[in-house]
Design a protein around this nucleic acid. Structure first.
Lengths: 359, 359
DNA sequence: CCCCCCTCAGGAACCGGTTCCACAAACGCT
DNA sequence: AGCGTTTGTGGAACCGGTTCCTGAGGGGGG
């Protein structure tokens, strides 16, 4: 391995000058600098990150904490973060801190400490108070992606508005019996008040849109994990129910929505004539399924978060609180107006009092 | 930050002894060792990876090269690799070396060199000769996952056998007009003879099974990228073709297979009565789609590869060449015997000569 | 009883960079 | 010409560990 001493010798200068010449810090005569650079080039010199990190305290690498890798949103974020970091000559070290991962604890009290990361990115975190404190104590720039955390720059979709818009789309088409398929069952840390709010926000958006449309009587919620399989299972159960038919499904994620679409086809229901389905995310599969959705851009979130922490590492104070980004409405073939007879409100059937009373 | 000198002082011994006591190397009296450990514990001491790496040359971190993150197989591998590494106190640094990534070149001639990785994992590589040489020159243990590379321990599915078995399943059910949906179009490095062979292997397995069954006359190949969207598009084109109907599709991947299933439903074809579909992979979505498939286990591959390189880092010479693992046959509802009239060989219709001549 | 070997511990060198500080030369100004 | 400032360079300390080497003490064997 060629060291800085080799370069120094070849260029006929000292280690100190060599270091300055290559890093661009301090006074170095132009001629000397060129000579050093040429020597380094010829020897194929590459500064050891270990040595340089030890001396400066900056490691040129950042840690990414992520609860799961094999899921659309997270993989997209990871991809864009990696790309943005490499472009700035930073390494990306990934820690999977899933809810039940065996190594989770050690990430916070060992791995993050032994290597001095220049920043930490929290992707879709589901962090306990103590863990969050441990990360804060590192004293390096932090940013989170996908789920907001108090006091930390958060790059997130505006889940509430997005879910509300999606629901309003269905309402506008004339739907009344719209059900929400999704979390939060089993998705949050029971013990942690600060855990991810995504599920709650999306449901809240749905709920408020329904209430605003005077449909609070028909608010309904079908539990589903955020996977196709779970969406399918939920769809089978709910769509087959002859007593309380739905005309539309507001799915918490595109994966759930795709599952519901599969269930509908299985049951011989025509989409969108018998049932409309809208999702949230902009998952790759959406197009193949003809799914109408609110499309977010995880890659953009990742890139923005990286830009943020990099700027703060460089010392450019950036106190601005990032604002939630909004999703893009993508209309495909899974939503349409309900069949004629279904667009008439059916509260009479569903309640004893009759009429559209608001509570 | 608390250093080893702090611990030494508190325990009343020298840095040297402290280091030995904590690392377990060399002679240390039991009493001293306990005292040092207690001091370290009380101070919350964690050795700096930078300093330790600089001194020993071992960095306790390994690099993972992967062409894409957001795809089932790769994400699964990444997840298992991360988990196995953390269990052994190694960090995982991820480099995305996709075909057209802007940073690809710098990964091989800069990033891999500046940090001294203890091993490199190549996942589904698509490596040029020069790049491979660069990796080899690192002089650290290597392993590849998902696609074999000459002279490197490879943890891969036996693609040929798997595809052949899948095809044989269809043949056994009585299918004759079976088409292969998949690569390699646009998937290999045109300039590189050593690039990934996955696509070719799977096609070869299909081809040989067909030939062995005397069906070489009806060999056919429908190009598709390995995505649902591409499988859907290919399915639409091919399944709608009234002149040359298929009774079965052998898809190169589950994602393609799922796309084909969507196409079939769109076209009003009954699966499996009108057309059977089999995939390869064991993708999460397979279950929701009722897809019959050859299920491989990427997590297992990742774990095995990590065990391999870790053992070699530890100096346990392990010259054994890993053997390709085989997939598990999972029967679901997308395959069945063809309709009666279709199970009769139709070579007469497809060739001028009539009869089942073998070329 | 003497000698050798094994155990234990510390000083110091070392890993490969960065940076502080001292010093010299060149430059600009009055 | 004299002096302060800017520019350029090198020696040496330092970052925080690990390891070599030396030496002291203790135990066992001849």
């Amino acid at each position: 391995m060629v060291t800085i001493a080799d370069v120094a010798q070849r260029a006929g200068v000292s280690k100190a000058t060599t270091s300055r010449a290559l890093s661009g810090q301090g006074y170095v005569a132009q001629a000397t600098r060129t000579a050093v650079q040429r020597a380094a080039e010829e020897l194929g010199y590459i500064a050891s990150a270990n040595a340089s990190g030890l001396a400066t305290g900056r490691s040129q690498s950042i840690a990414v904490l992520i609860p799961i890798i094999n899921r659309w949103f997270f993989a997209e974020v990871l991809q864009s973060v990696e790309s943005a970091l490499l472009a700035a000559s930073y390494d990306m070290t990934v820690y999977n801190v899933s809810h039940n991962s065996a190594n989770r604890e050690r990430v916070f009290d060992y791995f993050l400490l032994r290597r001095s990361f220049d920043a930490v990115l929290l992707v879709g975190v589901d962090t306990r108070r103590s863990e969050l404190d441990a990360v804060r104590r590192l004293g390096v720039p932090l940013a989170c992606i996908g789920a907001p955390l108090p006091g930390i720059d958060s790059y997130v979709l505006d889940d509430y508005r997005t879910a509300r818009s999606a629901t309003e789309h269905l309402v506008t088409l004339g739907h009344r019996r719209i059900s929400f398929f999704g979390g939060p069952a089993g998705h949050t840390h029971d013990t942690d008040p600060e855990s991810s709010l995504v599920h709650g926000e999306r449901f809240a958006g749905y709920r408020d849109a329904m209430i605003a449309a005077g449909l609070d009587e028909v608010l309904s919620y079908v539990p589903a994990q955020l996977t196709i399989a779970s969406g399918l299972a939920a769809g089978r159960r709910r769509l087959a129910h002859p007593e309380h038919p739905l005309t539309a499904v507001m799915a918490e994620s595109d994966e759930v929505a795709c599952g519901v679409l599969l269930a509908a086809r299985e049951l011989g229901l025509d989409v969108p004539r018998d049932v409309s389905v809208i999702g949230i995310d902009g998952h790759d599969h959406g197009e193949a399924f003809g799914l109408t959705t609110m499309q977010q851009n995880p890659q953009q979130l990742g890139a923005m978060a990286v830009r943020d922490v990099l700027a703060r590492i460089a010392g450019e104070g950036q106190p601005l609180a990032p604002t939630p980004v909004s999703a893009e409405f993508v209309v495909r073939s899974s939503t349409a107006a309900p069949r004629r007879e279904d667009s008439v409100p059916r509260q009479a059937r569903l309640t004893d009092t009759g009429g559209a009373t608001r509570r």
